[in-house]
Design a binder for these strands. Structure first.
Lengths: 350, 350
DNA sequence: CTGTTAGCGCTTTCAA
DNA sequence: TTGAAAGCGCTAACAG
């Protein structure tokens, strides 16, 4: 229980003294960009730093320079593979640029999201990436927008991962188009009686996927009756319960589309638990292509989003380091991330 | 493309002036702990801050106070559910204490881990949580230890999530014991011909689970021949390939234990792809109880670790806010996290 | 209770 | 090139 006498970390001052040079020289040798320091001095400083176990105090540096090396990432739920994959992309990209990533979770709670953004501003991050599922119509929307605008006014950069977040830079996800393509592919496979486990009504991503899917069906002259759409939580359990509800209603369905993979996984389990074999009995499709959908049985048909890449882009969009991918950049970021329908065992040809 | 004239964020100074009070008063009204400020003044300050869109510059605050509100979390791979669940726990707990968490990934690369720790020290985090899989015997081990020790010497606190990381605070995972219990349970179920898809040899977690499992079998007089142990990557694909290798060797096996769930998921897929039905043909068991193992078919037998909780504890251990759970605290943290064998469909009674 | 005034650790003019 | 000194935004004695 003896508390060790806790020295404080070595400061640049200490290093300078140890090396017998001025503070300024020490600073220049260790961090200053242009190498305008006598090599001999530099050596001594570096060695002194080494000897003292010195590490630049990033905060002090930030205060002095007036700019940080932090990027703040907001996600709804870090344990959700959708977000953790995106986070991986952001972190890797940030690493490459020497930036440090701070993660905050909002739990899909608008108020909390707003509070978090406010709190995060205190960190003066260089960039703020919002990956949470945008919500529509709430009173918070305007507040969030204004908070972010003011963040940008004061030198920050924000980037969204979303379907439309003008006026901010956005990694565009074409949820509507992806869902439409999926619907078309499924119709061509011979499915006719569709049901959708949609997410919460306020979540734009969920809405768009639902609408896009309906559009795709419409192209094939297939209607999607309102009673075939059940709204549920954006989670595995939400999907599970949604499917149960659907079955309870006794609808005659040959394919269930869950608006994201986590939900679809729940649907598959629910069907199986109800004695219906997913795939051979009722087809199931999801959206996102998270890693696990390959390993459940049957493997899930879904719409692939290159999640890691999306995260990476979101950062690059903000730092301006986006590699040129040939896509015309309209200023609000490149064209939508390409999306791809992946047909697997859960939707055999009928 | 017009760059908006970017004002810099309002400073406390601005607020003070706007409110017509001194810097000190402004500081006290906004952040100072003890409320020793005339309510009228306080009002004016708060309003001024509001009007100016002021947010405390946390970095400057940190520099002035000499202490930060940051906690750094190191994980091997944030997209791995094991780590993202732990991260969720850390983040939630941190939130409750008003701390901000920064996540770095090490990719199970010792050198990178070391570099990361060094870099992270620049943030002067209050606490550093290492959740990466400890490695044994490497030359880095000592360096890491010394880097961390010096971090603690200068006022930081480190906490490990591991099986033994003395002399640092540790959320103890009883990998050995958990694996032993699992082996016993499986033996009691009637399995006799075991094989293990073990992780990389250097990863202690993998080692311990392997050894514990062997011990458990030994208790039932069941040997585990070396050729029944194949070492593979700690990932889903590692598990997949490991199983393939095992099958190729033609061993006569009735149960495959993969030392973690992600690998086990790969094993299940590999078996199925090889035409062997997991569960009815060969039993499969994993370790961790990540969410997906309930949804694959058959559901996976595994050893449960309360991952979220583990993350939360790791933080509390460091901040000293651990709730009293009645377990005698030996100073290095509470007793091992309780572990539980969960039998599911992948290991029916034989 | 309020204001003045040193710092905190680092960067960056500005002279030398 | 180097060093002295003035900040960066905030806190914390210290007087008043």
């Amino acid at each position: 229980m003896s508390a060790p006498a806790s020295k404080s970390p070595a400061t640049l001052h200490d290093v300078a003294r140890e090396a017998g040079v001025s503070l300024a020289t020490a600073s220049r040798s260790l961090n200053g960009s242009a190498r305008k320091v006598n090599e001999a001095y530099r050596q001594r400083v570096v060695e002194a730093a080494q000897r003292l176990g010195y590490t630049t105090n990033l905060f002090a540096q930030a205060v002095a320079k007036g700019s940080t090396t932090t990027v703040a990432l907001l996600v709804a739920d870090i344990a959700d593979p959708y977000f953790s994959s995106i986070a991986a992309g952001v972190i890797n990209a940030a690493n490459e640029e020497g930036l440090v990533v701070t993660i905050a979770v909002t739990g899909r709670d608008t108020q909390r999201e707003l509070d978090t953004v406010r709190a995060l501003r205190g960190q003066r991050p260089r960039v703020m990436i919002l990956a949470g599922s945008r919500t529509t119509g709430s009173a918070y929307e305007e507040q969030l927008r204004s908070e972010l605008a003011s963040f940008e006014d004061t030198g920050g950069k924000v980037s969204f991962i979303s379907q439309d977040a003008a006026p901010f830079a956005t990694v565009l996800l074409d949820n509507r188009g992806g869902a439409r393509d999926l619907a078309v592919a499924l119709a061509e496979l011979g499915y006719r009686d569709f049901a959708v486990i949609a997410g919460p009504r306020e979540i734009r991503t969920a809405q768009d996927r639902l609408e896009g899917f309906a559009e795709g069906l419409a192209e094939h002259g297939i209607p999607l009756a309102p009673e075939r759409v059940v709204h549920a939580d954006f989670t595995r359990d939400g999907g599970y319960r949604g499917a149960q509800e659907l079955l309870a209603a006794g609808a005659d369905v040959d394919l269930v589309f869950a608006v994201n993979d986590v939900m679809a996984v729940g649907v598959v389990s629910a069907l199986r638990d109800a004695g219906i074999e997913p795939g051979s009995g009722i087809g199931v499709a999801g959206y996102d292509d998270i890693p696990t959908v390959r390993d459940i049985t049957p493997a899930l048909t879904t719409v692939r989003i290159p999640l890691e890449d999306v995260g990476r882009r979101a950062l690059q969009l903000a730092t301006g380091s986006a590699y040129d991918d040939g896509v015309p950049d309209s200023g609000e970021g490149p064209a939508p991330i390409p999306t791809e329908t992946v047909l697997r065992g859960s939707t055999p040809r009928r």
